Computed example of a mutant assay.
Amino acid sequence: MASFSTPPPPPSSSRGRWIYDVFINFGSEDTRKIFIGHLYKALEQKSIKTFIDGDDPDLLTTIQVSKISIVVFSKNYASSSTRCLKQLVHILDHMDPEKHIVVPIFYQVDPSHVRKLAGSLQPDHGSNASIEEMQNWRSALTKAAGISGWDSQESMDDAKFIEDIVQDIFSKLLQLSNVFINFRGEDTRLSFVAHLHKALYQKAIHAFSDLGELNKGDEISNLFNDIQKSSISIVIFSKGYAQSTWCLRELVEILECVDRKIQKVCPVFYGVSPSEVRKITGPFGDAFYRYNDNSRFDVEEVKRWRYALTRAANYSGFDRIHSKNDAELIEKIVQHTWRACRDFDV
């Protein structure tokens, strides 16, 4: 059964901050114990952090810190209370394809009835509402009904209906939680990174990573675009990391994104110590000895690589030696990334 959540404190700034994946807006008690309860449970089982509301004045703040708002229209939606209508206006005011997605669900009600404000879907709360409020509510209902969503009349039963909705929400969350994995392919591609990539996906986190081989002629600018679209970069330092100029160039770009305050970085020390990366010793020192000794490498670029390694190694991250095995390390990284994706403030 769905339980009530306590709204979070207001965001520390007017910039984006996510605390919840989903906010559920609904209007009547006839759906809470049946459809809403099952939907809430299914979302939570998919690791989708969901807020189901009560009559709390901070609910408008909660909408702002949620990635997606699900609006469940039922027959008594507009006539049950003004609460859901006020929320709906606020939801639509904050609708943004990259920051706040709105998904309408028409549960045992025709979308055209919502759009046309037919029957009980005509908001009427007497003298308690001003003319302006009534106009705003009507406009919001009409607008929301025009957004692509889900219609229960097109599904065989509630179980399949909810399953399809949850998968759709999961897919949408992947578009909003972008993470870039920077790693040396020969060291970790088929093992550690492959498992990490899968674990992130299971938490509705979309990871950009080169799980295939990079070919000559591939443009690094394409990788830079993926980096710039990500809110977090996971940098996996392994023994062969510094041998890859691709990795080093990506790392410089990642730190430039950090400087522009559009990204966070999480270093992972996999089979190497933070001091080896920071001080450019061991396998890192060997790689830079070759770079310094080879005239085809630009001196200034090599300096940028060296500085990027030293700087990245100073960020708080994860060291393989502090975990019993790769599975435990991956779980720690995924949990950290999951929280960071929701609390990221840019």
Rank of each mutant, 00 (worst) to 15 (best):
S3V: 12
S5A: 14
P8H: 13
P10D: 08
S13L: 05
R15Q: 14
W18C: 10
I19Q: 08
Y20D: 08
F23V: 02
R32W: 06
K33I: 04
F35N: 00
A42T: 03
K46P: 06
K46Q: 14
S47M: 13
G54F: 09
D55Y: 12
D56P: 05
T62N: 05
I63Q: 10
V65Q: 11
K67P: 07
K67F: 08
I70D: 00
V71K: 02
V71S: 07
V72W: 07
F73T: 00
A78P: 03
S80N: 08
K86V: 12
V89A: 08
V89N: 01
I91W: 04
I91R: 02
M95N: 09
K99F: 13
I101T: 06
I105W: 01
Q108K: 15
S112H: 10
S112C: 04
R115C: 10
R115P: 07
L121A: 00
G126S: 12
S130Y: 12
S130D: 14
I131N: 15
E133I: 01
N136H: 13
A140W: 03
A140F: 05
S152R: 07
S152I: 05
D164C: 06
V166A: 07
I169K: 00
L174E: 06
F180S: 07
F183H: 10
G185E: 07
D187K: 00
R189S: 11
F192I: 00
A199G: 06
A207I: 06
L211S: 08
D218S: 15
E219G: 09
L223E: 07
Q243V: 10
C247L: 05
R249P: 05
E250C: 05
E253K: 15
I254H: 03
L255H: 09
E256C: 11
E256Q: 15
C257E: 09
Q263M: 15
C266Y: 09
V268P: 04
S273Y: 10
S273G: 05
S275Q: 13
R278S: 12
K279Q: 14
N292R: 14
N292G: 12
V302L: 02
K303L: 08
Y307K: 15
A312D: 02
A313T: 00
S316L: 15
D319G: 01
D319M: 04
E331G: 07
R339P: 00
R339V: 04
R342F: 07
R342Y: 03
